[in-house]
Simulated scan of single mutants.
Amino acid sequence: MNKLSREELRKRAKCIRLVLTDNDGVLTDTGVYYSDKGEEFKRFSIRDGMGVERLRKVGVQTVIITGENSGSVKKRAEKLQLPFLYLGIKDKLAQLETILRETGYKPHELAYIGDDSNDLKIITEINKEGITACPSDAMEFVQEVVHYICTKPGGNGAFRDFAEMIISLKKEESEGE
């Protein structure tokens, strides 16, 4: 794990204004369900949704960035009132410049949570100035490079765990001023 001291995590958390999250494996449990008509279903955690809301209350927005182009992800983003949604993104690092331009945020204001090989490049970039995390059931090679491994698996509260960590660190930093 790419460990940062608690003090460094607090300093970085103070600046976080945008959390980027992968969808499959973070907001979902990696399962995809198909009906006999070929309809795709994904399960989302209500607790993760509350994490989005709690972050919003402390001035942190959430954005989904995913390689999928799924209607269920679009509906979930609408339900959560996310300001931006990036679907069908195969190269997340290449999309980062667009995200920064469209949102107006700077690299040190970002956090990222992902779980697999398609997240590694953006995790490595955000590690430089922001905070990164992965669900407890993320691929081992992702666990080795993030700052924080959540106590919960993807689709079962991992995003909420990361959100609460950021909120807690922000609170610690503001109390220390």
Rank of each mutant, 00 (worst) to 15 (best):
L18A: 07
R160A: 04
H108N: 06
Y86C: 15
P83L: 14
C134L: 02
Y112M: 03
S70T: 11
V63F: 02
G49Y: 08
K11C: 01
G71L: 13
D91R: 11
D119R: 05
L27S: 14
D116I: 06
T28S: 05
D161A: 11
L27E: 05
I167P: 04
L87C: 09
V73L: 03
C150G: 13
T103I: 06
P83N: 09
G104H: 13
S5G: 11
M165H: 05
E129H: 04
L110V: 14
G88P: 05
G130R: 01
L55I: 10
F141L: 04
M50K: 14
S72A: 15
C15N: 02
K3T: 05
V26S: 02
G25N: 11
P107C: 08
F162G: 01
R12S: 00
K128L: 12
S117H: 05
V63P: 00
R76P: 07
A163N: 06
S5L: 03
I113W: 02
N127M: 09
G49H: 07
Y105C: 12
K37W: 07
L85V: 12
A138P: 01
L93P: 12
N156L: 14
P83H: 12
F44D: 15
L96W: 06
L93C: 06
I167G: 09
I131M: 01
K75W: 08
D137L: 06
G157C: 13
R10E: 15
K57C: 10
Y112P: 01
L9N: 02
A13Y: 01
R47Y: 14
K14I: 00
I113T: 10
G88K: 03
L55P: 01
G71N: 13
L96A: 04
L87G: 03
D36G: 15
D29F: 04
V58K: 03
F162V: 02
L100V: 08
G49K: 11
I122M: 14
L110S: 05
T103W: 02
K11A: 05
D48V: 07
V142Y: 12
S72D: 15
